[in-house]
Design a protein around this nucleic acid. Structure first.
Length: 781
DNA sequence: ATGCACGTACTTTTT
DNA sequence: GTACGTGCAT
């Protein structure tokens, strides 16, 4: 099979590059996955054993898709590759070698719900005010630290402000509690995998020797931990191939660091760089609009998409009165487009910034009887009833898991409330054992008051019975059925009267099916490898653990993803990587896109604004044939109706590409005169919008009382720990080719470090944005 | 211990 | 508007 057939020049170069680091800038719609899969197939065709290839993605979906496409190219041998998400692959490595760094191989993975429960306990135990230290935000702090591979000790030693010390203490306690129950959270999977490679030379030797080729997808989204992990795995053979697009980096809030892709050539000086700029998806008009927007970002790797598909329809911009009218307009437009241009409902996508925008669309589509499919709203495995059942399985797998023990202790309700639980926990601390160990020990009852003992007695019997039966069970599905039977959880759910009963029962049944499917896959693996083991036999803890790992790491099946023809509604984040013939970008307003937090939130700054712009770019580049955009002049949020301004990004689309409708047609060529008046707060004019060094950790200060009027009290103070800016607003500067100028905006926060905007004095030069590190710029006297 | 009612605060995106 | 947390009554 000729793997090079149908590939363009740069794609071929990427596929055939033999040894050494390779960086592929793959613009939207440039055939990225095709290039990556063909490269892997090409490696295999040229004698590299699939067993020695590691391919990493961010999402399970991407991993599945890649595997599928690879199997089409090279057949079943693709199964022998290590291909999966960062988290899944790290978990796998830790199951195999984790003991070398002191991890219990039966560790459970805490997902976000477990994490939050644990964090709530920590904050409470430390007697901290949950208003000033909201558990969810504390989790974010911990996650940030982990993404940068900072231990609690490091955080403590670098803490200067009282708040920071508290964060470090919280992190420390959180981490201790995790380890006490042999639990790892999502971030731990990466952190510990890195630690394994650093602290166990044999492990590093083993894995880095094994992986002749390491390939990473969506490289613009990696964080420090992920990067180090990949780098170490590739340290032996130096064959690290990364694919990404800095313009589509939209996960900075999750620790993704765009600098890692931008600095790749610095880290690997001998890297070959390939740019995929030919776009096979969109019309040139769409690409021009997208380029108009994204080119307002800087510190980006320079590139521009082009298409052989010249021209195309203009982009439509509609101004609606409010969100209801906006939704109605979308429905009508879809109906006419379908009639006139014979599109299928599956060809349409509505992309929004936040899930909260979906309601008016659901209503409008329902009323007009147009099927609408919502994607990615709630993860299947996150549903309460599913988590209740899973708590039992997790507890069976690892009785030290106190969060699961706590969860199942009174589900279904058996009269054990906080008071009783408190007594048990005290006893656990007294005896230095876990809550689970107490629950499973018949002796425990003797140590309790008769009243408490009577309460937990039935629970204890139930658990012991389930544990005894679990030993005899052969599959995860059987175990699950046993748990359901003994706990009568289904009866409990069926008896609840909150309107969701039917869904809940159906969901649990769906979980049983997921388990059956898992067992089936396991059985197939056994056929291939010749190994057999019982589900949760001590000799192989991997089976049940593997299933639980999947429930934590995979969202679960999108229930109606592949149902009948329907229009798709999802967030811009969820849309990355997808394409649709017709894309509606809705809610294009200041405050929504760009999101309020990026313009007038506590940490607002250019970094955030640029990420919002990339979101807009991602949205635009999803469209193949048509882009239709809309905004509402009034929008109700938090129960309050406010008038809004159209998004500033609309100004960045060349006017000749736009066809205006509704309010947008009445207003005239320029849409936004003044960026941010209608929200109150500061008037936008004085700051020129670009001054971002007010990031002086405003998040560490008490929150301002009003959410709409941010306090700029700290705006002029520099964050103490940061390196000082070279240039400040008002500085006179001299540039190598542009001559003298005045700094009008400055920030330390661009993708490529410090940048300034300079108004040059010379005729016809005007204002330029410059990256300090690259520009030939110096201070003038 | 449980359930209800009220008040409050909150809202981005998710592996 | 909703979801959650708190406080009260059963």
């Amino acid at each position: 099979m000729d793997l090079l057939q149908g590939l363009n020049e740069p794609q071929r170069a990427a596929v055939t590059h033999s040894d050494g680091p390779l960086l592929i800038f793959a613009g939207a719609g440039s055939g990225k996955t095709r290039t990556l899969t063909h490269r892997i197939a090409y490696l295999i065709q040229n004698g590299v054993s699939p067993h020695r290839i590691l391919a990493v993605t961010f999402t399970n979906k991407a991993a599945r898709e890649m595997r599928e496409r690879l199997e089409n190219l090279v057949g079943g041998v693709a199964k022998r590759m290590w291909l999966g998400t960062f988290h899944a692959l790290c978990a796998q490595m830790l199951r195999i070698h984790g003991e070398r760094i002191g991890l219990n191989p039966r560790f459970v993975i805490f997902d976000s719900d477990d994490q939050l429960r644990l964090m709530k306990e920590i904050v409470k135990d430390l007697n901290l005010d949950t208003q000033r230290f909201p558990p969810a935000r504390m989790l974010g702090k911990v996650s940030d630290a982990k993404n940068e591979l900072k231990t609690p000790e490091i955080l403590a030693s670098t803490a200067t402000r009282p708040h920071e010390r508290i964060y470090a203490t919280i992190y420390q306690n959180y981490q201790r509690r995790l380890r006490e129950q042999s639990a790892l959270d999502f971030d731990d999977l990466l952190v510990e995998a890195v630690r394994l490679l650093k602290e166990s030379p044999e492990s590093l030797e083993h894995w880095s020797e094994r992986f002749q080729h390491v390939l990473i997808d969506e490289f613009q989204d990696v964080n420090e931990a992920q990067f180090q992990w990949a780098q170490m795995l590739a340290s032996k053979h130096k064959n690290i191939c990364v694919v990404g697009d800095d313009d589509q980096s939209i996960y900075a809030w999750r620790g993704a660091d765009i600098k890692i892709i931008l600095d790749f050539e610095k880290n690997f000086p001998d890297a070959m760089v390939v740019r995929l700029e030919q776009n096979y998806r969109s019309t040139q008009n769409i690409l021009d609009a997208a380029h108009g927007v994204i080119s307002h970002n800087f510190g980006r790797a320079s590139k521009q998409l082009w298409s052989e598909e010249k021209g195309g329809e203009p982009l439509v911009l509609h101004g609606a009165l409010n969100a209801q009218e906006e939704a109605l307009w979308v429905v009508r437009r879809i109906e006419t487009l379908r009639r006139e241009e014979r599109f299928s409902l599956d060809d349409f996508a509505i992309l929004c910034r936040v899930n909260a925008q979906s309601r008016p669309f659901e209503e409008a589509f329902l009323r007009n009887r147009v099927p609408l499919r919502l994607v990615g709203t709630q993860r299947f495995y996150d549903r309460r009833e599913i988590r209740d059942v899973l708590a039992y399985l997790k507890f069976i797998y690892n009785p030290d898991d106190a969060i699961s023990a706590n969860r199942l202790i009174n589900v279904p309700p058996r009269g054990i409330g906080t008071a009783t639980v408190q007594k048990l926990e005290n006893l656990a601390i007294e005896q230095g054992r876990s809550l689970g160990a107490l629950l499973l020990d018949p002796e425990t009852q003797k140590a309790l008051s008769p009243a408490v003992a009577r309460k937990i007695e039935p629970l204890q019997r139930l658990l012991l019975q389930i544990f005894a039966e679990a030993n005899a069970v052969k599959t995860v599905a059987d175990l699950l059925e046993k748990v359901l039977e003994r706990t009568q959880l289904l009866d409990f759910l069926a008896g609840e009267k909150d309107g969701e009963t039917i869904d809940r029962v159906a969901n649990v049944e769906e979980l049983v099916r997921a388990a059956e499917y898992f067992d089936l896959r396991m059985a197939e693996d056994v056929l291939e490898t010749g190994e057999t083991t019982d589900v949760w036999d001590e000799s192989d803890p991997l089976r049940l653990g593997l299933f639980l790992g999947e429930t934590a790491l995979e969202g679960g099946t999108d229930k109606d993803a592949e149902s009948d023809e329907a229009v798709t509604l999802m967030t811009l984040h969820a849309a990355k990587g997808l394409e649709f013939k017709v894309v509606f970008l809705v809610g294009l307003e200041e405050g929504l896109l760009p999101h309020a937090r990026a313009i007038w939130g506590e940490n607002a700054g250019d970094e955030q604004l640029e990420e919002e712009r990339r979101l807009m770019y991602v949205g635009l580049t999803r469209g193949e044939k048509r882009i239709l955009m809309s905004y509402a002049a009034q929008r109700t949020m938090h129960g309050r109706t406010e008038s809004t301004q159209p998004s500033q990004f609309l100004n960045e689309i060349p006017g000749y590409l736009l066809q205006r409708e509704g309010l947008a047609a009445q207003i005239g060529p320029r849409i936004v005169q003044n960026r941010s008046t209608s929200w109150g707060g500061y008037g936008g004019s004085g700051y020129g919008g670009n001054y971002a060094s007010n990031r002086a950790n405003l998040n560490d200060l008490p929150r301002p009382q009003t959410s709409s009027a941010p306090s700029f009290a700290g705006a002029k103070t520099e964050k103490s720990g940061d390196k000082p800016p070279t240039f400040r607003i008002g500085d006179k500067v001299k540039h190598g080719s542009y001559g003298d100028g005045l700094v009008v905006a400055a920030s330390l926060s661009g993708g490529a470090g410090e940048w300034v905007e300079v108004a040059f004095l010379g005729e016809g030069i005007g204002k330029k944005k410059l990256i300090v590190a690259y520009a030939n710029l110096e201070k003038a006297a």
